[in-house]
């Protein structure tokens, strides 16, 4: 076993009893920007010309922020959460078969139900099916590299894919991305909108990645690293990784039915 493996994120992620959301004005908890990468992070060179330099103007949550798009099963197709099958032409994609699963929670620990989770990634050789990707590793004819799922009533999501490969990119002359899967998550209000990346336990490229190390908080970085989850692995078929995602919490209001999980 790898003694260097990061701990299973925050152990509270899996605790059974969520906190009761505080009664209040329905607004979101103030975002703690100290756990996010700063806009201007010179080690990630692309951020230099694309980072605002003025202070952000802080807004209390209004109806424009606590609302957001609602998605349903009608928006999805039956194979959308199966990247092994959703682009297969004449067989399965090449690579290590894996399951990725977890819950979308808010900061009180409650599951975020019926929310859209989208994911995309390179193939097992580290090549994206994208007309702008020119890396020499081959395209896999049976792998598209994108999928999406709706969380269930408890915030749980699940998908199947092959493990993405690392790949080189232009930052320093020898910069390589650790294997990763991109995630896009909505939540219930537009102010919860989040894009992030999931990494794999034990990847030696993690501590030298110029993008991952834009995150100033070591614990926040570790929470992006999914542990191997043998309990969820399918014998003689697929390994599994667990990745829980936490969106901002929200105060409830007097008008809400507080038992309804909203």
């Amino acid at each position: 076993m790898n003694a260097q493996a990061p701990a299973l994120q925050d152990p509270r992620l899996n605790r059974p009893e969520p906190l009761t959301p505080p009664l209040g004005d329905g607004g979101f908890f103030q975002r703690d920007r100290s756990i996010h990468p700063p806009a201007h992070a010179p080690g990630y060179k692309s951020s230099v010309l694309r980072s605002p330099r003025q202070s952000l103007l802080s807004l209390e949550s209004s109806v424009s922020e606590i609302t957001g798009p609602v998605f349903g099963h009608n928006d999805l197709g039956p194979l959308d959460n199966d990247m092994i099958r959703n682009y297969a032409k004449d067989g399965d994609p090449v690579g290590e078969r894996i399951i990725v699963h977890g819950r979308v929670l808010d900061e009180t620990g409650r599951g975020v139900p019926n929310t859209l989770v989208e994911f995309w990634q390179a193939n097992a050789g580290g090549r994206y099916r994208h007309k702008k990707d020119t890396y020499l590793a081959p395209i896999d004819p049976n792998f598209g590299g994108c999928g999406r799922a709706l969380t269930d009533d408890t915030g749980y999501y699940y998908f199947r894919t092959v493990k993405p490969g690392p790949y080189p990119w232009r930052n320093f002359v020898n910069s390589w991305r650790p294997a990763h899967i991109h995630f896009s998550v909505f939540g219930s209000g537009f102010a919860q909108r989040l894009i992030t990346q999931m990494y794999f336990e034990g990847d030696p490229l993690i501590p030298v990645c110029p993008i991952l190390t834009t995150i100033p908080d070591k614990d926040a970085l570790d929470r992006l690293v999914a542990p191997l989850d043998l309990n969820a692995s399918t014998p003689f078929d697929s390994l599994a990784y667990r990745f829980d995602i936490v969106l901002r919490g929200q105060r409830s209001t007097y008008f809400e039915n507080r038992t309804a999980g909203n």
Partner: peptide, 21 residues
């Protein structure tokens, strides 16, 4: 005992694959 929000990461140059294939 509040959880912490998951850290953001860039959408990257290939964001179209996932969101506008």
């Amino acid at each position: 005992n509040y959880l912490r929000e998951t850290a953001s990461q860039t959408a990257g140059p290939y964001v179209h694959i996932g969101l506008i294939p």
